[in-house]
Design a protein around this nucleic acid. Structure first.
Lengths: 144, 144
DNA sequence: GGCAAACTTGAAAGTGATAATCAATTACAA
DNA sequence: TTGTAATTGATTATCACTTTCAAGTTTGCC
């Protein structure tokens, strides 16, 4: 899992004529072992605790590279923060976002995806990506 | 339609203890007869052509009021611009967004909505709103 | 109509997150 | 080792809002 992503990223780096650096290695390691849906700010602050020398701009640029290489995806939940999600090949999921506590759960539903394809077909539309988010109260917040 | 929304907005204004002004009337008229999914920038520039005296901040604040009153809704398609959609009571639709030309089409699908409810129920989640967008190429852009 | 209080307006300044700049540093092929 | 192209980190710029504030309007009340 982690191995595969490290390989995917180093392949990307090589193929683009970019370089392997200490900072990129550190940020990649950190990203791969961190939680889903961390924002740039989150990641930078936590990373800085262990590696004070790494600058904000470097983290920013490196996360963009992760997204470009396909091992991460940028997502927005409308709170003004770009978050980074781990991407596993061939897998797609959507989100349940708690508007009270901010918790994010993931789900997959093949039937919905199929219906989306039908809608697109009806419009002669070719889907590249989609975004489905359900906003509301999670079980914990509801019970309070 | 337009009548109903004007009434809805003036009721909102009255109920909130706000005032009826020339600017709000102009912006409301303009908004109600403009296209769906206009951004603040779009609306301001087009409006300014007819009414040079109206300031950006006023358009901004008034659109926020429209959203608060329920006659408009803010939506984001990931291009960094907040857009304003006309809201018709009891109606909900989702979007097809062309990544080439920016065209936006709307669709409704009750089966998808029902499946969303099922997903939410499985997680003990209470849906307040949802967001479903299909990104890709519209029929026109595909045929080129 | 005249007034005072409260709300609005428009211009300008402020914010917060993202993106670009640049001199100094580092990686890597030859 | 060396030349050169990429990278880094600090700083500055940008972008799209968002707020501030002095001057102008609206509205209820006499």
């Amino acid at each position: 899992m982690k191995r595969a992503k490290k390989k995917a990223f180093s392949d990307f780096i090589a193929q683009k004529g970019l370089k392997s650096t200490r900072q990129r290695d550190i940020i990649l390691d950190f990203f791969l072992s961190s939680a889903q849906h961390m924002s740039l700010e989150d990641l930078y602050l936590k990373l800085r605790a262990k590696h004070p020398g790494i600058g904000y701009a470097t983290v920013y640029r490196t996360l963009k590279l992760f997204a470009e290489s396909g091992i991460a995806r940028e997502i927005q939940f409308g709170d003004g923060q770009t978050r980074y999600e781990h991407v596993t090949e061939g897998e797609h999921h959507d989100h349940l976002v708690c508007t009270r506590c901010g918790a994010i759960a993931e789900f997959e539903n093949e039937t919905i995806e199929k219906l989306q394809d039908e809608v697109a077909a009806a419009y002669g539309f070719l889907i590249e990506t989609h975004k489905l988010e359900l906003y509301g109260l999670c079980a914990k917040c509801r019970s309070k």
